[in-house]
């Protein structure tokens, strides 16, 4: 890695004529053929996108904390709200637990897809990506089930609910809705990349794209870890 020395690091005073003026000069001054991150640009950009997404979800969860901590009306007990009626008794958070395991499993298959891609086995990589997408779609379906149960049977609305603090609905629909949107987008992304992988579109570029798609997918799982802890368990 130390062999990746910056080419211009020795030129203390570059000749003036080498630096172009105007807009082109601005671009060359800011780039100067220097690389901060020694990874594929697509991977660096994905990480930076995920960083921005971290701030979005971080702000959502902070907003949720704020309304929950400031309301004088009791917060509905998530353990009871999200219970499933199985065999004559209510099992707390059952659906949410299953959703969590499904998403973790999808992360596992995704990690293995990346592994196969770097070993040059694009067929297994693509197959595992389709499995990941299937798990993701399963998650979205379960979420749709959960939403309809909450809306139709429990009477939860963004502006109120029969169980307690009105803010419960608005934060719930906003946070899980935005996360579900991410899962849906991820499923589409995975299917597109896996299909292209099978068609041999990445033979020249390399299979780095699988890892980049994987980063996005693991991030979706990562966000769910925080939602699960702060929204469902708290």
């Amino acid at each position: 890695m130390s062999a990746v020395a910056l080419p211009s690091s020795d030129d203390v005073t570059p000749p003036a004529h080498s630096a172009p003026a105007g807009l082109r000069g601005l671009v060359s001054d800011w780039s100067s053929d220097k690389e901060a991150f020694h990874v594929a640009w697509g991977k660096a950009m994905m990480w930076i996108f995920l960083l921005s997404d971290t701030f979005i979800f971080g702000s959502f969860l902070t907003g949720y904390m704020t309304v929950r901590a400031s309301t004088t009306v009791p917060w509905p007990n998530p353990s009871e709200v999200f219970a499933l009626h199985v065999g004559g008794s209510n099992v707390p958070l059952l659906l949410i637990a299953i959703m969590t395991f499904v998403l973790i499993s999808s992360s596992g298959t995704m990690a293995m897809a990346v592994n196969f891609a770097y070993r040059g086995d694009r067929f297994n990589a693509a197959a595992l990506m389709f499995v990941t997408a299937a798990f993701g779609e399963m998650f979205v379906f379960m979420q749709a089930f959960e939403w309809s149960k909450l809306i139709l049977h429990e009477g939860v609305r963004p502006w109120g609910n029969p169980m307690g603090a009105a803010q419960f609905g608005s934060t719930f629909f906003m946070i899980t809705g935005f996360h579900g949107l991410h899962v849906t987008a991820g499923v589409i992304y995975l299917i597109v990349v896996a299909t292209r992988l099978l068609r041999g579109k990445y033979e020249k570029k390399g299979y780095q794209i699988v890892e980049i798609a994987g980063l996005y997918w693991h991030f979706v799982d990562l966000v769910w870890v925080f939602i699960f802890a702060f929204f469902y368990l708290w």
Partner: peptide, 19 residues
């Protein structure tokens, strides 16, 4: 998830700290 699945444990520190 971040360290192993997202390979952060094996990335260079410049990227790790930036993220």
């Amino acid at each position: 998830i971040v360290a192993v699945f997202m390979h952060m444990a094996w990335e260079r520190l410049a990227l790790v700290y930036a993220i």
